[in-house]
Structure formats: structure tokens, C-alpha cells
Design a protein around this nucleic acid. Structure first.
Lengths: 204, 204
DNA sequence: AATTATTTTAAACAAGTGTTTAAATTTTTG
DNA sequence: CAAAAATTTAAACACTTGTTTAAAATAATT
């Protein structure tokens, strides 16, 4: 598991794990250092401060987070296929990183806006021209006419929420990890069908 | 605004505000005391510990949170109406308390399971017999045949996520509070239509 | 009114926080 | 190899943390 990473990389890796699991306020610099097998002072030597390390971690996680999205948006497929593949890829990614959506939404909700804006992923999405593509399809009548914000909410909500709500749903329904994972595979199909039917009314 | 509440009530009220806004680890006992206009020692005098105060707050918030749900489940309406009213009431409640879903999902995801189970709201939901009602309707063919977990995920996800993701979406879309609020009113209609169409295939 | 119980206060506690320092070590450079 | 630079270390810094204490103030009881 442990590669011969540089000290900086080791700290960043450990910090990512700890921050995602416990949040910025839920852990200490010493805990991160210990997780990385390093001295506390090295955290600040390489990353100036806990806050700065956090920003670096968030930026990297966000990048990873939007990478697969961007990839789908840029592809040369009809919107209906993009929708299906988007959901497929999101569930894939989230199965491997189930705590990331909650981490992003919750940790960043508490920080100031400027923090959010410093991480430039909005431009990246805009550059894919996905918005224009959707609008064009709406004018042609292929896609249901609704605000892009609502489309985002439908897509992201139905992909991310099942992972964010995992602990709650598991407690309510008294089901273990394995069962919940299987449930998610099923759920992905439902979500795909529901969203495709709703967003592309003429498709069936 | 400030009623002549008891010290205990004042502390609990302040703690609720602060905990929801900043999370358990994001605030101190002193901050809660200050928000309540009280001495620090009073927090522990009346609530033993910060942790215990947190549990009391969570229990109350959860109760409030599931109260409107339970109410709809128990009503003597056809499932399709219950669905519509459920969504309506959730959006109503969440407009007033937008930070609660994120608070519950995130703060409780980090605590141990026993903590979650100590708050008995699962029984309350079961007592409404909503599960049996859904199952009966599924056997009659009125409701799409899918696991109750998936139905919960669809309902809750499409209600809660738009409020949880508010800071993120606002940053991505560069929209202010007022605009987002209006967007949510629209979104509620979309969600209702989409979910009703999907869950009740024979309805149209 | 005097006594008891409850509530509130300021101060202190030990432990933990992010961060800095200055010396020791390792690595790189000339 | 010696000098300089970069890295790592242990220790300390000032500050905040949750919690406790013991005295003061208030309320309730007899």
C-alpha cells in the first residue's frame, strides 16, 4: 500500500483521508501527522498551515470529483446517452469515494464563498458547452424545458444523495453495508429510467 | 424575539442554532453559552456535558424533522395524494429549516450507530403502517414495484438535496438567495410531477 | 426570619490546539 | 570532501478546549 512517496505527498494523502472522514474541525494537525507517520512540524513546514493544507486537499478532491463529469460532457454523444453515462459514472465514482459529496457540500457550506470560488471548476464545466447543448435541445423539443439549475439538482440529487444518506438509511432500514451496496446498484437503474423518462419526454 | 425562557431552554435554543450552523466540532461550549447570554459553567450544570447537550438537541431536531412526515403517513388519503402532500410539506419545512437535513446526515454519519439508535423515530414511522400500505398498493399494481429503500431515497433525495446543496449550487450558478428560493418553488413542481409519474405508472 | 436547596458566578484545571523555534540531521551543491 | 541548503526533529509557545470547583447570589421551605 505505502509507496515511497515524498513527505509532502504522504501528508497530503493522510490529510485527505482524515479531512474527508472527520471534517476540518473534527481532526487535529497532530492526527494528520500521525496518520502520515510524520512529525507535526512537517505539516506546517510543507503546507504553511492546517487551513492551507485543507484548501490544497479540497482543490484536489474537487478536481477528481468533477473530472469524470467533464469527461462525459465533452464527449460526442447525444444528450440522452450523456445522461445515462453520467449517472453510470457518478455511481461508479461514488462507490469508490462515497464520502466525497458529503464532504464537499458540508465542509464548503461552512466556509466563506471566496474559498469556494478560488477552486476554479465552474469555468471547466462551462468550457464543455454542456449548457448550450442542453438549451439547443430544449428549443428543438428534445429535452424538457426547465432551468439548468433544476436539471443539475435532479441529476446530482439522485446520484449523490443515496451515498450521502447512507448512514441514515442504513439505520432506518437496519441494513448492512453489503445489502446497501446492492440496493444502490438497483437504485441506479431506477434513477436512470426515471430521469431519462422525465428529461426526454419524447424518447419512448 | 427573546421570550422569558428558563436558563435551560435558552441554552438549548442557542445550542440548536450553533450546532446546526457549525456542527458539534465547529463550536465550543463557551460560544454556546455566549449565544445564550449565559455563563459557561451553566451549560454543564444543566446538561452535564457538551456531548449530552448535543444529544438532546439532535433528539429534538429529529423529532421536529419527522413530525410532519409522520403526520402525512397517518392521514387517510390515497398514496398518490400522500406523495404530493409529503413533497409539499417537506419543501415547506425545509424552507424554514434549510440546514437541518445536512446537519442530521452529516453530524450523525460521524457518530457511532448506537447514538443514532437511541433516538427512536424508526418505530414512529413503522407505526404509521406506511410500509404495509405501499406494499399493498404495489401488489395491486398501483405503485411501481421497487424496494421501499429506493422509494425513500427518491422521495428524500429529491426533497432534501436541493436544500443541502444550496451553497454549492449557488456558487456554481452564481445566484443569490432570493433567486435560489424561487428556483426551489419551481423545482418542487418538477419533482412532484417526476416522482408521481414514476412511482404511479398507471396514474396518467 | 432563618435555614435549606437551588442556581449562578468567576476562577482554575489539565489536556489539546495550531504554530514556531532552534538545533540536529540529511541532502544537495561547488 | 567541505559548505550550503533543505529537511526533520523535539521542545516550547500562547491559546482554546471541556469540565470542575468553591464561593456567591438567589429561591424555596420551614
Amino acid at each position: 500500500m505505502e509507496k515511497d512517496l515524498t513527505t509532502e505527498a504522504k501528508i497530503k494523502e493522510a490529510a485527505t483521508r482524515v479531512f474527508i472522514a472527520k471534517g476540518f474541525n473534527g481532526c487535529s494537525s497532530r492526527e494528520i501527522a500521525k496518520e502520515a507517520g510524520m512529525n507535526v512540524a512537517l505539516v506546517n513546514y510543507h503546507f504553511q498551515s492546517k487551513s492551507h493544507l485543507f484548501e490544497v486537499v479540497v482543490a484536489t478532491v474537487m478536481e477528481e470529483f468533477v473530472f469524470s463529469m467533464i469527461d462525459v460532457f465533452k464527449s460526442d454523444l447525444p444528450l440522452i446517452s450523456k445522461t445515462r453515462i453520467f449517472i453510470e459514472k457518478e455511481y461508479d465514482f461514488l462507490s469508490k469515494h462515497p464520502d466525497i459529496p458529503g464532504f464537499i457540500i458540508n465542509e464548503l457550506g461552512k466556509k466563506d464563498k471566496t474559498f469556494f470560488e478560488r477552486i476554479n471548476f465552474i469555468e471547466q464545466i462551462k468550457e464543455t458547452k454542456i449548457y448550450d447543448e442542453v438549451q439547443a435541445a430544449q428549443e428543438k423539443g428534445d429535452v424538457r424545458k426547465m432551468d439548468i439549475t433544476s436539471i443539475m439538482l435532479l441529476m446530482m440529487g439522485n446520484c449523490h444523495f443515496p451515498f450521502m444518506a447512507k448512514p441514515m438509511i442504513q439505520t432506518i432500514q437496519c441494513i448492512d453495508d453489503k445489502t446497501y451496496q446492492n440496493q444502490l446498484t438497483l437504485h441506479k437503474q431506477y434513477v436512470t429510467e426515471m430521469l431519462v423518462n422525465y428529461l426526454f419526454p419524447t424518447s419512448k
